[in-house]
């Protein structure tokens, strides 16, 4: 009987430990480590994924884009437009702070800047070609609540699209719930709401939806739906200008 009680107690302790481990983890990590953990919980370091971007106008009219994206390491991302037909074959490449756009009709990559938007609406190029938050920002813990932590992220350089980010992180799963993006002037540029946590397989469990609104575009909402996120390795040469019109060939 006493042995059974001991086993039960051990089990309870183990369960309690498992339940509280994210909190312990959060408590034991500094802000930058926490941010790295958030990055890894959102995506593997190198991956492929599919996204649908929906721009919704106040009238209810909407425009949709489907992108295939590939990322490697800390600073390499390439995205290919699969839909609509008018944008099919366009690709965008990011190598560190460098960004390019390839349009099939134009036939050569042109440099673009992070604040431009290749799709219009609330999303800009930095949102579409996002690299790890920890690669671009220095984090500090601003507030601690029972269920959430609030991180303040300051851009490491002037090349980063948003000067500051305020990130609400759910302590239990170390995933963002909301991010506010600010310009250097303190102006709120946009707010991202992370929703619908889903298991993508391969140990990836993250929000499948990001809803974005902006006080600069009152009444407009942009929605990003995620699918098919998989860890995958690519050679560095996949992330070059020469390869931009052949991104499709990376898909299996």
């Amino acid at each position: 009987m006493s042995r059974k009680r001991t086993t039960m107690a051990s089990l309870l302790v183990a369960l309690l430990f498992l339940a509280l481990s994210p909190l312990c983890l959060a408590a034991g990590l500094d802000a930058q480590d926490l941010l790295r953990k958030v990055d890894r919980n959102l995506e593997p370091e190198s991956y492929e994924m599919y996204r649908k971007l929906i721009n919704v106008e106040p009238s209810g009219a909407k425009k949709e884009f489907v992108l295939y994206s590939v990322k490697k390491g800390n600073d390499k991302v390439v995205a290919l437009f699969l839909e609509p037909a008018s944008d099919k074959g366009r690709s965008t490449l990011r190598l560190g702070d460098n960004m390019w756009l390839y349009i099939p009709n134009v036939g050569k990559p042109v440099r673009i800047t992070s604040l431009q938007s290749v799709i219009g609406g609330v999303f800009n190029n930095a949102d579409i070609l996002r690299i790890d938050y920890a690669a671009e920002y220095v984090a500090s813990i601003e507030e601690e609540h029972k269920d959430t932590l609030v991180l303040m992220l300051k851009a490491k350089t002037g090349e980063v699209a948003y000067d500051r980010l305020k990130m609400w992180v759910e302590r239990k799963v170390l995933l963002p719930v909301k991010i506010e993006a600010y310009a250097a002037s303190g102006l709120l540029i946009k707010t991202l709401h992370f929703k619908d946590i889903k298991d993508f397989g391969g140990g990836i469990r993250r929000p499948a939806v990001i809803e974005t609104d902006s006080p600069l575009y009152k009444g407009y909402v942009s929605i990003m739906l995620y699918a098919g996120i998989k860890a995958r390795q690519f050679p560095d040469e996949a992330f070059t200008l020469t390869n931009m019109h052949r991104v499709e060939e990376l898909r299996k």
Partner: peptide, 11 residues
């Protein structure tokens, strides 16, 4: 993982 549905407003 490859399929998702999301409701925003009435849509």
């Amino acid at each position: 993982a490859a399929f998702g549905t999301y409701a925003y407003g009435a849509e």
